[in-house]
Nucleic acid binder design. Structure first.
Lengths: 165, 165
DNA sequence: CTCCGACTTCAAGCGCGCTTGAAGTCAAGC
DNA sequence: GCTTGACTTCAAGCGCGCTTGAAGTCGGAG
C-alpha cells in the first residue's frame, strides 16, 4: 500500500467519505473551510482532520449558519486537532441557543396553526398567522403577535377592516 | 374618498400593508400566488383577499415551503374567501406534520450537541454529530445515528481510524 | 510506450427569491 | 399646461451554495 497512505486523502476519497461532491470540496477549500497540501503533481491531499471540519460545516448548516459563518466558527477551533472540551463548549452553547430559538419559533408557529384551526379564519386583524406573516417579523423579535392591531388599520374608515369580500 | 376605495388596493398600498416590496408582489403575481384586475390605465388593483393570500404564503415560507409549493397549497383554498374550517384543517394538519418533523430534527441535533459537550471529540466514528453530517442524511430518514459504523471504515488497516493527527 | 481515469483550473451556469434599472405611462395637484 | 410621483414592462443582476463544462495534467496499469 505504498503511495495510498491512509492518513491523507485525495479529493475523491474525501468526497466519498464525506458524501459531498468533489466540486463542493474545492468550493469549500476556496472559501477557506478546509485546507490541503499539494503533491508534486499539484494534486490536493487532505489531512483526515478535513473530515472533521466538513462534519462541523455540515452541522453548522443544519443549525442555520451560512458557510461564511461556519468559517468564522471554525476559525476558533484548532486546525488539525479535535477541539478541547472548553472550545467545543463555547461553540455548542452558541448553537444550542440558536436551536432553542428555532424550536421556539416553530412551536409558536405550531400554536398559531392550532389556533387557526379553531377560528378557521386567517382573519386580517385577529389571526396570529396573518399577523405573523404581516409585519411581526419585520418589527423585530418578541411575543407581540397576540392582539397586535397593525398601525395602518387604525384610521380605517370602514366599519370592520376585517370584512373582506 | 371617491376613487380611493378601500376594498381594492394599489400595489403600493398592498406593499405597505403586507410589508413586502412592490417588486416582490409583482413577482408573486407572476408566479400565480396572487391575482389582480387592471384599471383603464393598466394599473393593478388587488382585492383585499390578496392580503390573506400573502399572509398564507409568508406562513408557508416559514414552514419551509417553496413559493411553488405555496402556490400548490394555495390552489386548494378558495380564491377570494376565507377558507372553511375543513379546508384549513387539511392544510394546517400537513403543516403541523412538517413543523413537528423540523422540531424533532432540531431536538435531535440539540441532543447530539449535548452529547458532544460530554465527549468533546467530534470523533470520526463515535460522534453523533460527525455521523449526522457524514452520511446519515444521505441514507434517508430514521434514527440510525447511534453506533453507525460507516462502511468505508470497515476494511481500514490502521489501529483506530479515529486516531488523527 | 499507450491508455485511462482521476485529477487540475477557470469561467460560466443554475435555482431560488427576489431587487434594480431603464424607459415609458398614468393621474392628481398647481 | 407642467410637474411629480406612483405606476407599467422587461431584462438583467445578486447572493448563496454549489454544479457543469472545457481544456489540460497526473499517475498507475498493461
Amino acid at each position: 500500500m505504498a503511495p495510498t497512505r491512509h492518513d491523507v486523502l485525495t479529493i475523491g476519497q474525501l468526497a466519498e467519505r464525506s458524501g459531498l461532491a468533489a466540486s463542493a470540496l474545492r468550493y469549500y477549500e476556496s472559501l477557506g473551510l478546509i485546507h490541503s497540501t499539494r503533491t508534486a503533481g499539484n494534486q490536493r491531499r487532505y489531512p483526515r482532520s478535513a473530515l472533521r471540519r466538513i462534519a462541523f460545516v455540515r452541522a453548522a448548516q443544519q443549525v442555520g449558519l451560512s458557510l461564511d459563518e461556519a468559517r468564522a466558527a471554525l476559525a476558533r477551533l484548532p486546525e488539525d486537532r479535535a477541539p478541547s472540551t472548553r472550545q467545543w463548549d463555547a461553540v455548542a452553547a452558541a448553537w444550542q441557543h440558536r436551536i432553542d430559538r428555532q424550536i421556539a419559533e416553530l412551536q409558536l408557529m405550531r400554536a398559531k396553526l392550532t389556533g387557526c384551526i379553531g377560528c378557521g379564519c386567517l382573519s386580517l386583524t385577529r389571526c396570529g398567522l396573518y399577523n405573523a406573516a404581516d409585519r411581526a417579523g419585520a418589527a423585530g423579535p418578541g411575543a407581540r403577535y397576540l392582539l397586535t392591531r397593525d398601525p395602518d388599520t387604525g384610521p380605517e374608515p370602514g366599519p370592520d377592516p376585517d370584512a373582506e369580500s
